[in-house]
Amino acid sequence: MARNFIIENMPEFKSIEANKFSKKRLAIWAGLIIMSLFSLYFITNNEDMYNKPIAKIITINEEESNKETTDGKIEPIKNQKIQAIIMNGIYKGKTVELNNLTSFSQVNDLDLKINDEVFLSIEDNDKQEISSANIIEFKRDKYIVYIINIFVALILLIGGAKGFRSLASVFVNIVIVFTIIELFTKGYDLMAFSIIASIIFIVLSILIVSGRNKKSISAIVGTLIGTLVSMLIAGIVIKLNNWSGIHFEEMEFLTHPPEEIFFIELIIGTLGGIMDIAISISSAIKELYDKNPHIKRKAIIKSSREIGQDIMGTMANTLVFAYISGSVPTILLLLRNGMPITNIISFNLSMEFMRAIVGSIGIVLSIPITMYTSILILKNQKIGEA
């Protein structure tokens, strides 16, 4: 042991270990850069992977005009005459003439630019020549890959090893989601599998990011109890009111009971916020224990309550803004058509407000639950008694 201690404290030994770590980190970053460059090259040259014809816009001539809408307002209209070259299929390399009508609002149309790529619907004649071609949709995959690469780079640059584990957690959770969707399409009970999936989300997400330790266990227990209690409260209140005040017009297209789908949305949306609070509280308590193993129990409770109260306000706002932000286009459209804001709130935003309220209840409840759970699980840290 003495020999190992001497070796580990030798400057040369430390320098060798530092060099090994630096080379390993450099190799990881080099690998990630190569993967990123490969993905960018692939996504900009993947037209042959699609069955639908894809065309790249090479020239655009625009004619502007105005159009009167049904409510008497004037909206600018732009007629784009486009030349594009087909990038795949049997007509690869041929040039086609396209027309695209775009409005100022761009609700149901596209404002195209040179070098944009679009999917086409092509009709040919008996001589296998193109008789007409129409734009179906914009090709967006390369922009998605761009933003994913930026996200991965930032999370690894800032988060380091924990950032990598966070990415692994996201990947695992995506696999679980698609597995549940696939099972649902085969006739399995969606509610039961969603509850199971939520438990797996919580356990895997926290364990992958924070590792197997008592801090993770306290966060998992706090999240599970907080989610369960908030769902029980929400379920009881909704049942007593017989779902009154919640409008399911947005779910009319579903062939599944909207109440069940909505409750599953509540579970998934709530556990995300609760999990964030739980891991923050348990991490804070663990740090307090590590810094002062003889800290008084009252001091632990006071400090963790202060931390929880600070997080609580911002997280509640985050939930509200996250849910309502998805309804901004609908709100603007309804306001433009003269619907009063009170009707929009009561009819079109009822589900968003319910999701935000239930999530906020879960966040508030998770603070004391995780706090006392963490103290109980970490009680062998020799905490001083008050």
Score class of each variant (00 low, 15 high):
3 R>Y: 10
8 E>V: 04
9 N>Y: 07
16 I>T: 14
19 N>P: 06
25 R>G: 08
26 L>C: 03
30 A>H: 00
34 I>A: 05
48 D>M: 09
49 M>W: 12
51 N>T: 08
55 A>L: 08
60 I>W: 01
62 E>A: 06
63 E>H: 11
67 K>P: 02
70 T>W: 10
72 G>F: 12
72 G>I: 11
75 E>T: 13
81 K>C: 00
89 G>A: 08
93 G>T: 10
95 T>K: 00
97 E>F: 04
98 L>S: 09
101 L>C: 04
102 T>Q: 09
105 S>T: 06
107 V>Q: 12
109 D>E: 08
111 D>G: 08
113 K>G: 03
125 N>S: 02
140 R>W: 04
154 L>Q: 03
156 L>K: 01
156 L>H: 01
157 L>R: 02
160 G>A: 07
165 R>M: 02
169 S>L: 00
171 F>S: 00
179 T>L: 09
183 L>N: 00
185 T>H: 11
186 K>A: 03
196 I>G: 08
200 I>T: 10
201 F>K: 04
201 F>S: 06
205 S>I: 02
206 I>G: 04
213 N>H: 01
224 L>F: 13
239 K>I: 04
244 S>D: 15
245 G>R: 14
251 M>K: 06
261 I>L: 09
262 F>N: 01
265 E>Y: 04
265 E>F: 07
268 I>Y: 10
268 I>N: 15
271 L>P: 10
271 L>K: 13
275 M>E: 08
277 I>P: 07
279 I>G: 03
287 E>R: 13
288 L>D: 05
290 D>K: 14
296 K>Q: 05
300 I>H: 12
306 E>Q: 14
315 M>S: 14
319 L>S: 13
329 P>K: 12
342 T>I: 05
345 I>P: 05
350 S>A: 09
358 V>S: 10
358 V>T: 13
362 G>Y: 14
365 L>E: 11
367 I>N: 09
373 T>E: 01
379 K>G: 03
